[in-house]
């Protein structure tokens, strides 16, 4: 793996993330890309715990823990304070889970990016409320079991397309990234860092605990999400310039689903239906990317 910032480390060992935690990997890569001049705003999420209890900290950059729904707003305030202090060097990054982004924090996020606040919002997406014990969120994919969508009541609604929601705000930069593609992730974070205004990065971060997968498979499954088109890697500049970063191998989604306990109940018919949904989403994305050419 070739990364310029390979040696830069802004995280300590000994945090309390679960074995194989995708969110921990995502943070590690992101901070490698951002460097020491970074302030992390951390609304309630798994990382509120992983970041460590008083008087210790997992990170080597300052962290402002904040209320669940305030990721966009607190970062706006931090940026404003830095601006009035004349600090243009420091990057403000909000680091939120899918619950804090798709659901409870969506308003503050929408407000902040509508104002085009100069910060990076990273949503590390583990597709449910994992910190509270695997409850469904609007990021939970169609078909998934969670503790609040148990048994035959598995989630029948599709995952909210958060990137498109952000793109609709016409922010300078919105992108997806994935822990299995570190070079791409780091490049996107660095690109976001160099741009002014609101930047949104949606990072796929697998959760062995909540997805009922073996811990060693967490990166493999993350990679498969891209390979199957379930989570395409792409970026959108100024709300209209789409670039697809990875031409997937078009594996069948079935391969991805059958590895995960949270999808165990799905029938072949369900999987066929999901395949159609994925194909449809991919077609839509391709069209958007092509229209610019």
């Amino acid at each position: 793996m070739e990364l310029d910032t390979k040696d830069d480390e802004y995280m300590y060992s000994g945090h309390v993330g679960c074995p194989g935690c995708g969110a921990a990997i995502a943070m590690r890569f992101t901070l490698k890309a951002l460097g020491a001049k970074t302030i992390v705003v951390l609304p309630a999420c798994c990382w509120s715990i992983i970041a460590g209890p008083y008087p210790q900290s997992t990170l080597k950059v300052p962290v402002i823990h904040s209320a669940f729904e305030t990721g966009g707003a607190v970062a706006s305030g931090v940026r404003a304070a830095l601006d009035v202090k004349g600090d243009t060097e420091t990057t403000v990054v909000t680091w939120a889970g899918d619950g804090g982004t798709f659901d409870i924090g969506f308003q503050a996020l929408s407000g902040a990016v509508e104002r085009n606040e100069d910060f990076i919002y990273v949503c590390y997406d583990n597709e449910a409320y994992m910190n509270t014990g695997v409850q469904r969120s609007s990021s939970t994919p169609y078909g998934a079991w969670t503790t609040t969508t148990p048994g035959q009541d598995w989630k029948k609604m599709r995952k909210k397309n958060i990137v498109e929601a952000l793109v609709a705000h016409r922010i300078p930069y919105a992108a997806t990234a994935n822990i299995a593609f570190p070079e791409d992730l780091v490049r996107k974070v660095q690109k976001a860092k160099a741009l002014k205004g609101s930047k949104f990065i949606h990072v796929y971060a697998s959760c062995p605990t909540g997805w009922r997968i073996p811990s060693e498979m967490s990166v493999k499954i993350a990679r498969m999400a891209v390979q199957t088109n379930i989570f395409p890697l792409y970026e959108v500049e100024n709300g209209n310039k789409y670039t697809i970063n990875y031409k997937p191998k078009e594996y069948l989604v079935r391969e991805y689903f059958k590895l995960q306990g949270r999808f165990r109940h799905l029938t072949d018919r369900d999987l066929d239906q999901i395949q159609e949904m994925v194909n449809e989403d991919w077609e839509v994305l391709l069209r958007k990317a092509a229209e610019r050419v």
């Binding site: 060992s13 811990s215 493999k220």
Partner: peptide, 15 residues
């Protein structure tokens, strides 16, 4: 491997 901190997740082996 720093066994003080390794949680044995096995990611390194798979990756």
């Amino acid at each position: 491997i720093n066994y003080d901190y390794c949680k044995g997740c096995g990611l390194c082996v798979v990756e």
